[in-house]
Design a binder for these strands. Structure first.
Lengths: 142, 142
DNA sequence: TTACTTTTTGTAAGTACTTACAAAAATGTT
DNA sequence: AACATTTTTGTAAGTACTTACAAAAAGTAA
């Protein structure tokens, strides 16, 4: 009955009596990977990760870069990603506030994966819109 | 003033007088890529794409594979992805219904990118949870 | 005839996300 | 003194996502 589900991946056992599972399974509803995946692929999370790939940035800087994000959601998203150890938050404790955000090594890896998807999408966008029956002119709206 | 924004990517001009933009820009709020990115990275969209990487599947089959998804949301997500030309829907027009879903070549490319992120996450999950201060036992909850 | 099959949609209700707006801090500028 | 600066949080209100549940189609099995 073991491994009847192809998504249930038990790759290693601990030396103790108890089974130790060493990797997540996004197909399992209760797996913690689900929550983190939601953060990484959230509407603004994706864009924050990509924006931070170019280096350390301040809050307002990110807000200017990421078109359409509100202060509220940017703050929210940054907190999610910080809690998941995807980014570092450096607070200079000054007034007015000066806070810098940068990717952790973990975050950089995630950001690269996300960036590859976004980059692919940007390139394929005209083809996708064509297939949809839309026009390809004016794609770059600001 | 052109190209003052590093995310505004104009890579080609048409032969006519009008400017023809040939790739999207996810950082621009009004760019159509935004909507498609949301579909690809949506809570269930990610999992549908990954599940379909293993081949053609029926509705209930997908529902069983993707833990926690409701019929309503699975149907909704499948429609989004179908409209974006990411998957084909083959209806046998029988009663009871028999419908098969499979990735288009476009969808397969997107799914692979998404899968790489999910795969990375599954492997890194224990490290992420450790950094969070949680335990790594029982990660594979079903 | 009654039950079961599969997929999709409608409804109602609930949760989560998102926005707009105001507020706060301590210092520098006009 | 009045104002701008930067980041975050609170509130209230609105939109979008999500669930649970019932319904429908037309045959087949009991």
């Amino acid at each position: 009955m073991l491994v009847s589900n192809p998504f249930l991946q038990v790759t290693k056992m601990s030396r103790t009596l108890s089974t130790r599972l060493v990797r997540g399974n996004v197909m399992a509803a209760a797996c913690p990977s689900r929550e983190i995946l939601r953060h990484l692929t959230s509407r603004w999370g994706v864009l924050v990760l990509i924006a931070l790939l170019s280096g350390t940035r301040r809050f307002s800087d990110l807000r200017r870069t990421i078109g359409g994000v509100s202060e509220r959601m940017l703050a929210q998203t940054l907190q999610w990603l910080e809690q998941d150890s995807m980014l570092n938050r450096r607070d200079y404790n000054t007034v007015p506030p000066h806070v810098e955000y940068s990717l952790t090594s973990l975050g950089r890896e995630a950001a690269q994966k996300v960036q590859q998807l976004a980059d692919w999408l940007e390139v394929k966008l005209p083809a996708i819109l064509d297939a949809r029956g839309s026009v390809t002119t004016g794609v770059n709206n600001t």
